Amino acid sequence: MARFSNKVAIITGSSNGIGRATAIILAKDGAKVTITGRNAERLEETKQQIIAAGIGSENINVIVGDITTTEIQDKIINSTIEKFGKINILVNNAGAPFMDSVGTLGFSQDISIYDSTFELNLRSIVILTQKARPYLEATKGEIINVSSITSGPQAHSGIPFYSMSKAALDQFTRNIAIELIPFGVRVNCVNPGLVVTGFPQAMGTPLEASKTIYDFMGSNRDCIPIGKTADPSDIGNIIAFLADRSQSFYIVGQTIQADGGTTLIMAMNTHNLMELLK
């Protein structure tokens, strides 16, 4: 029997990248899935990839729209219950950095960028989790939040509002993990490093330039010690592990760093100091 047979999962931000990979992995392992995103065409691509993996369309619920709106938040929850009758797994993956019209980075961004960033990366997650909570308590379900290594103690001066929102998401994970575990609901968080997704394009980087970044970072072990930029499925498999209570039941309220070793590196340690002494 597939490990997620008779389970129902909601995966937000599943029109590409980590969300798409996670939806495919969970569906292939038996879950009925609700996939969501703002781009109808890309969300349809996700659906077709799930179907191509041998999953019937009756096991897929598609919701197109902006997850920061009350209408779409309610539609995600209500349509899942109407179609599948329950919720076992909530993957809060939707999130992104924001640029202004002239591509400003850093603290010089208008405060409206701060508001948009926190609305998507934190507020929408808090609200959707609140709305899913009674159904997750009924099934003793799982919540997996997708954060970022930018939430850590290292500075990310180019995207301060994004990294601040992800740091808040990590703390949200810890707080609600303790509140919900007495009700049988486990909450954990995955903090990816660099992943081959549409992240650079969201910040205005052309596709070819994005590939250059991925290739450079992946081939430099002072950036990614494992020697490879992650594929979305690398992160999706970790999310699936955390969603599988039979394998990860004793992990509660943790933030799993999935970055190929990036956050263990200090720039000064990437140079051979002994060479300097010769």
Rank of each mutant, 00 (worst) to 15 (best):
R3D: 13
F4G: 10
S5K: 09
N6M: 01
V8S: 02
V8Y: 08
T12F: 10
S15D: 14
S15K: 02
N16G: 06
I18L: 01
G19F: 04
G19L: 09
A21D: 06
A21R: 08
T22D: 07
I24Q: 13
G30E: 05
G30T: 11
A31P: 03
V33A: 13
V33W: 10
T36Q: 15
R38Q: 12
N39L: 02
E44H: 07
E45Q: 12
T46N: 04
Q49W: 00
I51H: 05
I60M: 05
N61W: 00
V62L: 14
V62R: 12
V62P: 00
I67F: 03
T70D: 15
T70G: 08
E71S: 09
I72R: 08
Q73S: 00
Q73G: 08
D74W: 06
K75P: 07
E82I: 08
K83C: 04
N92K: 07
N93F: 11
N93Y: 00
M99S: 12
D100M: 02
D110Y: 04
Y114K: 05
S116A: 14
L120F: 06
R123L: 08
Q130K: 11
K131P: 01
A132K: 04
R133K: 12
Y135P: 00
L136G: 06
E137P: 00
A138E: 11
A138D: 10
G152Q: 12
S157L: 13
G158A: 12
I159S: 11
A168K: 09
I178A: 12
I178R: 15
I181L: 09
F183G: 14
R186H: 09
A202M: 07
M203D: 06
T205Y: 01
P206K: 02
L207Y: 14
L207C: 01
A209P: 00
A209E: 15
A209G: 05
Y214S: 02
Y214W: 12
C223N: 00
G227P: 00
I238V: 13
F241Y: 12
L242D: 04
A243T: 13
D244H: 10
F249R: 15
Y250A: 13
V252M: 13
V252F: 04
N272S: 10
M274H: 10
E275N: 09
L277K: 14
K278F: 04
K278C: 07
K278V: 10
